[in-house]
Amino acid sequence: MRLDLMQLGLMRLGFLSSHGGSTARAVTVACTRGELAATPALLISNNSASPVMQWAGEIGLPRLHLSRAAYPDPDELDAAIVAALRAHQIDAVVLSGYMKALGTRTLTAYRGRMLNVHPSLLPLYGGRGMYGDLVHAAVLAADETVSGATVHQVEAGIDEGTVVAQSRVAVLPGDTVATLRARVQATEGPLMIAALQKLAEAVT
């Protein structure tokens, strides 16, 4: 798949990702299929060797490596991220497994237009140290019967932004971290796409 940026929707999307970028990939596919009225316009990663950077190169999505390696001062990195998003005329930002805290400039510039997906029913199992498989392990250890995913606005506190949408999946007898992760992850892309469609209708 190669992107034809001239034929997609009006809302321009930026992605921030550190590793595989599964949500960024799902959102991009939805855009190319006409299921989401938006245009993937930029990927920023703090990890130059990440699979998501390779993927972006393969499909022709503009990509930038911005990290503390080049910007050891956090304020300078924050300013560089905002400058890159503005240079590419980004309307909304999707965090897709971005493992770094964002600075005040970025959070202010895109307040209400920056979304993240978290693999639990926030406020449960959110906050510092709760990410990826650690979330699913905690859910299983607590003998929860229901889990899911949450799309929320990104604010200064970790996983504390306003909840936009949630999906729910049953925690089944005999579940492992891997099986629970698979079911929750399967809901994350569609959940983010639906949230972005509502945002697109509001900003375009």
Rank of each mutant, 00 (worst) to 15 (best):
L3T: 03
D4G: 00
M6E: 14
L8Y: 07
G9V: 05
M11G: 02
M11W: 06
M11I: 11
L13C: 07
L13K: 05
G14N: 04
L16E: 03
S17F: 10
S17K: 10
S18A: 03
S18Q: 09
H19Y: 11
S22M: 02
A24L: 14
A24N: 03
A26W: 06
V27G: 02
V29K: 14
V29M: 09
C31D: 10
T32S: 14
R33L: 12
E35V: 03
L36P: 04
L36T: 04
A41E: 02
A41Q: 10
L42Q: 07
I44Y: 03
I44F: 07
S45I: 08
N46A: 08
P51A: 07
W55D: 08
P62R: 06
R63W: 01
R63Y: 00
L64K: 15
H65G: 02
L66A: 06
A69R: 15
A70E: 14
P72I: 14
D73I: 11
P74C: 06
E76P: 00
L77C: 04
D78C: 07
A83L: 10
A84M: 09
A84I: 11
L85P: 06
A87Q: 15
A87V: 03
D91I: 01
A92R: 09
A92F: 06
V93A: 01
V94D: 01
V94N: 05
S96A: 14
G97F: 04
Y98M: 08
M99Y: 01
M99C: 05
K100V: 00
L102C: 04
L102E: 04
L107I: 09
L107R: 04
G112R: 05
G112Y: 00
M114L: 10
L115N: 01
L115D: 00
N116A: 13
S120P: 11
L122K: 07
P123D: 13
L124Q: 14
L124M: 12
L124F: 08
R128K: 15
R128W: 08
M130D: 06
M130I: 12
V135T: 09
V135Y: 04
A137C: 00
V139W: 08
V139T: 12
V139S: 01
V139E: 09
L140N: 01
A142C: 12
E144S: 13
E144T: 01
S147D: 03
G148L: 04
V151Y: 12
V154M: 04
V154C: 09
E155F: 02
A156V: 13
A156P: 00
I158D: 07
I158K: 10
D159L: 11
D159A: 12
E160G: 03
G161V: 04
G161Y: 00
G161C: 11
T162R: 15
V163G: 00
V164T: 09
V164S: 03
A165S: 15
A165C: 05
Q166H: 10
R168I: 09
R168E: 13
R168A: 12
R168K: 14
V171T: 01
P173S: 02
G174K: 08
G174H: 11
G174S: 05
D175I: 07
V177F: 03
V177Y: 07
T187F: 02
E188S: 13
E188A: 10
L191S: 09
M192F: 09
A195M: 06
L196N: 04
L196R: 05
Q197Y: 05
Q197G: 14
A200V: 11
A200C: 15
A200K: 06
T204F: 00
